[in-house]
């Protein structure tokens, strides 16, 4: 019989906990989580981390002014390249835009706008869609008919075109974009949640609650909504990526977040001409940010889908 030396239990427990932690960590989608965490941290800490303001041009040196304009003084130096290119400087590591503003700082602040818009827009869409989906699935009859017919009609609308239409009615603005995203995407939630609730309402725990005379609202609140949250979370994470794209597209088309606020889509839109002139950094960096955010959100959503579904998880 093996014996455990006195005092070793603590070490063994620690090793087991470390192994458990490692197993959990190994299963987590590290790449998207790291990217999303970094982007979220940058967004939150932008005022601290950004080397310059988001709207003000970087004050140029005398040498820069002379080199660019042949004069000792100038308000700003536009289109400075990244630091590794000829003419680039370390204090504007990713270069400057047409107004002499620091590209890196605008990207950092842009992360705030893109994340705020995408997260809150998707959150509102999720809230509206979940409530309507639960009501349609659980209440049935005309509730179901009315909500689902509206949902079906909504789902046929092409999301970007619909978003542009709403945007031209509401006008540009950060919170208008949030509202538009909510109005465009709620139907995807309500359709999925309703299907889930149709199955849940036939389950014993719901039936027993009904037999015990528990009110419908309480059943929805206590039993149905918690049970559809897995589906909602998966959808949420997948929709965030789509919302980022829609926000970027709206801003690119001039109906999203109004300038001079730095949204990533807008940064790309404002520098369309720059590619022709070889100023690639003005287009490529915001593009990389959008790609990273969308890809990470999709990877995380995919991971959640697999891990929250018992059938897929055990495969």
């Amino acid at each position: 019989m093996a014996t455990i030396p006195i005092g070793a239990e603590g070490r063994i427990a620690a090793v087991r906990a470390a192994r458990r932690g490692y197993r959990v960590l190994r299963e987590l989608p590290m790449v998207p989580l790291v990217i999303l965490t970094v982007l979220a941290a940058v967004a939150v800490l932008a005022p601290v981390l950004a080397p310059h303001g988001k709207l003000d041009p970087v004050k140029p040196t005398r040498e820069q002014c002379v080199a660019k304009f042949g004069a000792g003084d100038c308000p700003y130096v536009d289109n400075a390249p990244p630091f590794w290119s000829a003419g680039g400087r370390l204090d504007t590591p990713l270069g400057t835009d047409f107004l002499g503003r620091d590209v890196l700082s605008r990207l950092m602040y842009g992360a705030r706008i893109s994340l705020i818009v995408a997260l809150t827009g998707t959150l509102f869409a999720g809230a509206i869609g979940t409530v309507l989906g639960v009501l349609a699935g659980y209440m049935g009859r005309w509730w179901d008919q009315i909500i689902m017919r509206i949902t079906d009609a909504w789902l046929t609308l092409p999301s970007l075109a619909f978003a542009i239409l709403l945007s031209s009615v509401r006008g540009p603005g950060l919170w208008n974009v949030v509202l538009i995203l909510a109005l465009v995407f709620w139907s995807r939630y309500s359709r999925a949640v309703r299907g889930e609730v149709l199955a849940l309402r036939e389950r014993d725990f719901v039936k027993l609650a009904e037999i015990n005379g528990i009110g419908k609202l309480t059943i929805i609140r206590r039993h149905l909504i918690p049970n559809v949250m897995n589906t909602v979370m998966v959808l949420f994470s997948l929709q965030v990526g789509v919302a980022v794209i829609i926000e970027a597209s709206l801003s690119f088309l001039g109906v999203g977040v109004p300038p001079p606020e730095p949204s990533w889509g807008l940064l790309m839109a404002q520098e369309r001409e720059s590619l022709l002139e070889g100023r690639w950094w003005l287009e490529v960096f915001p593009g990389i940010c959008i790609t990273m955010l969308v890809l990470s959100a999709n990877m995380l959503g995919d991971w959640l889908r697999v891990h929250l579904d018992p059938q897929l998880r055990n495969r």
């Binding site: 709207l55 003000d56 041009p57 006008g171 109004p258």
Partner: peptide
């Protein structure tokens, strides 16, 4: 940008 430099701040309506 010039207006902001003297304290007049706004956004563009496109």
């Amino acid at each position: 940008n010039d207006l902001r430099a003297v304290g007049l701040r706004s956004k563009l309506q496109m």
